[in-house]
């Protein structure tokens, strides 16, 4: 286990030294910080919605880019620079390497979300005069969304090149965000032939559902009532953890066969 955490630590150390990731973080922090300036554009209730949805939008976008950019190269770079040779010559199982990389990625995301979350809370407090606990829930959900995306990217990185990975994981992220509502729409329409419906159903089940994490919808539209919010959050987080575990196990199996 020590080896896994050593690798996770090194992964975190390298990620936070990556200029592109730091630029994304800093830009996101800056935008969140100045977002209260938009307040005059909306009045009363509208201002709250605007600031919160805008902040979440920025955080989600930054989290998505950070997850994809950080994880596409994570394993391929180790192979290309051959730093992995020395690591695998130590008493390190290949699965520990994969797990260490994943923990490092999640740790980096946690750090990024913490920074963005703190700034978001401060900015919204200044603008709205009170702390909104919904913001914390939203941050947690988006953090799990980004972590799940990181697992998807890491999984693809064990067998495709970084360039292909950008498109694959970008595509999976988009589909995973849109498929469930698309499926709902066509299920409501009796004219849709099963030949169309079944593949969509299948894809919706197989691909990770990223839409569940987009909690800004109920927060921003309070009229959309969730019967049991806690159960929903717990369920969604459990879904993320199970799905990530499956992806990481699959990554380990593929990586175990790999030649370097």
């Amino acid at each position: 286990m020590n080896a896994t955490f050593a690798i996770a630590g090194a992964t975190f150390g390298e990620a936070v030294r990556k200029r592109i990731l730091m630029v994304i973080l800093l830009v996101a922090l800056l935008i969140i910080l100045i977002s209260p300036a938009f307040e005059p554009f909306a009045a009363g209730r509208g201002a709250r919605t605007l600031i919160i949805s805008f902040g979440f939008g920025v955080i989600q976008l930054a989290g998505t880019f950070i997850a994809i950019i950080m994880c596409t190269g994570m394993i391929p770079t180790e192979i290309e620079r051959r730093t992995i040779y020395t690591i695998l010559s130590k008493p390190v199982q290949r699965y520990q390497f994969v797990l260490g990389k994943f923990f490092g990625a999640v740790g980096t995301l946690a750090f990024m979300y913490l920074m963005m979350g703190i700034v978001f809370l401060i900015a919204s407090r200044l603008a709205l005069g009170s702390f909104d606990p919904q913001i914390v829930k939203g941050l947690i959900m988006f953090f799990f969304q980004s972590s799940l995306l990181a697992a998807v990217v890491l999984f693809f990185s064990t067998f495709v090149s970084p360039l292909v990975n950008y498109f694959l994981s970008g595509g999976v992220f988009l589909m995973g965000n849109l498929l469930s509502s698309f499926l709902e729409t066509i299920q409501r329409n009796p004219d849709v032939h099963p030949i169309t419906r079944i593949p969509v159903q299948l894809l919706t089940v197989v691909l990770p559902n990223f839409a569940n994490f987009n909690v800004q919808n109920p927060i921003i539209n309070p009229e959309q009532v969730l019967t049991d919010e806690v159960a929903y959050l717990v369920q969604t987080i459990a879904y993320a953890i199970v799905y990530m575990a499956l992806l990481i196990v699959a990554s380990m199996l593929i990586f175990n066969q790999r030649e370097m």
């Binding site: 020590n2 080896a3 690798i7 090194a10 150390g13 051959r82 020395t86 130590k90 008493p91 390190v92």
Partner: peptide, 29 residues
């Protein structure tokens, strides 16, 4: 691999780490 060690052909180490950090990292492995 506890009983083996390996010197790679070229120094394939994390070059952003210091000498002490890289040795500490491998010692943890």
């Amino acid at each position: 691999h506890h009983k083996i060690s390996y010197l790679p052909e070229n120094p394939y180490f994390y070059d952003y780490m210091t000498g002490r950090e890289i040795l500490t990292f491998y010692a943890r492995l």
